[in-house]
Simulated assay, not measured.
Amino acid sequence: MRTLLNVIWLVFAGIWLAIGYALAGIICCILIVTIPFGIASFRIAAYALWPFGRTVVRDPDSGVFSLIGNIIWFVVAGVWLAIGHVVTSIPLFLSIIGIPMGWANLKLVPVSLLPLGARIVDID
């Protein structure tokens, strides 16, 4: 079932989200100072491609630099990305077929808010 949901997600939403996050990651890596944000964007892009069967886990040993980076990310991009995920999940919830896709979109909110110090792992 996860594979079917991931394929449907990939076709209708995942590929576009992943491309957006990957482009943001490329821009962040070009700017050199923002390379940690670029790496986080690539990690979110991979999660956006195949979200079912995976979850976000916080790394307790991430340190103070992750905290500072997350504060900067939250102010500059995190709030807007989270709002975008919530707003796009609302129409998905209006149809029965779109409900799992809405949940997948909402699963991206925590990692889009605070991506540094987060790991994406398989549920199994």
Score class of each variant (00 low, 15 high):
residue 40 A to Y: 07
residue 100 P to A: 02
residue 93 F to P: 01
residue 57 V to A: 09
residue 89 S to R: 02
residue 28 C to Y: 15
residue 4 L to V: 15
residue 71 I to Q: 06
residue 92 L to R: 03
residue 48 A to H: 05
residue 32 I to H: 12
residue 42 F to Q: 12
residue 36 P to F: 06
residue 80 W to I: 12
residue 75 V to C: 13
residue 112 S to P: 04
residue 69 G to K: 03
residue 62 S to Q: 05
residue 5 L to F: 13
residue 23 L to G: 12
residue 82 A to T: 10
residue 20 G to S: 10
residue 20 G to H: 04
residue 21 Y to W: 14
residue 86 V to N: 05
residue 6 N to D: 15
residue 47 Y to H: 04
residue 54 R to A: 11
residue 12 F to S: 11
residue 121 V to M: 02
residue 72 I to W: 00
residue 23 L to R: 15
residue 109 V to K: 05
residue 103 W to M: 12
residue 48 A to Q: 03
residue 123 I to G: 03
residue 9 W to K: 05
residue 91 P to I: 04
residue 5 L to T: 10
residue 93 F to Q: 02
residue 105 N to C: 15
residue 30 I to M: 14
residue 60 P to E: 10
residue 53 G to I: 01
residue 75 V to G: 00
residue 54 R to L: 09
residue 2 R to F: 01
residue 66 S to P: 04
residue 17 L to S: 04
residue 75 V to P: 00
residue 86 V to G: 05
residue 83 I to R: 14
residue 120 I to V: 13
residue 89 S to W: 02
residue 10 L to Y: 14
residue 38 G to A: 03
residue 91 P to V: 05
residue 73 W to R: 01
residue 35 I to R: 11
residue 74 F to K: 05
residue 30 I to W: 12
residue 83 I to E: 09
residue 82 A to P: 05
residue 68 I to M: 11
residue 16 W to I: 06
residue 36 P to G: 06
residue 54 R to I: 04
residue 89 S to N: 10
residue 67 L to P: 01
residue 115 P to C: 02
residue 13 A to S: 08
residue 23 L to C: 13
residue 117 G to R: 07
residue 119 R to F: 01
residue 28 C to N: 15
residue 7 V to R: 03
residue 104 A to M: 07
residue 96 I to Y: 14
residue 116 L to G: 08
residue 26 I to W: 11
residue 1 M to T: 15
residue 118 A to M: 10
residue 59 D to T: 02
residue 21 Y to P: 13
residue 118 A to T: 13
residue 25 G to D: 04
residue 81 L to P: 06
residue 40 A to R: 09
residue 91 P to A: 08
residue 48 A to W: 02
residue 25 G to C: 03
residue 47 Y to Q: 00
residue 15 I to F: 10
residue 121 V to R: 00
residue 88 T to Y: 07
residue 45 A to Q: 08
residue 8 I to H: 14
residue 89 S to D: 09
residue 20 G to E: 09
residue 43 R to A: 00
residue 50 W to Q: 01
residue 104 A to Q: 06
residue 18 A to E: 00
residue 120 I to M: 02
residue 122 D to R: 09
residue 28 C to S: 15
residue 64 V to E: 12
residue 117 G to H: 07
residue 77 A to Q: 09
residue 58 R to N: 06
residue 49 L to K: 06
residue 112 S to E: 04
residue 113 L to R: 04
residue 50 W to L: 03
residue 70 N to H: 04
residue 101 M to N: 08
residue 55 T to R: 10
residue 103 W to D: 07
residue 39 I to S: 05
residue 110 P to T: 07
residue 31 L to Q: 07
residue 35 I to Q: 15
residue 62 S to A: 14
residue 15 I to H: 11
residue 66 S to E: 07
residue 99 I to E: 12
residue 69 G to E: 10
residue 102 G to A: 14
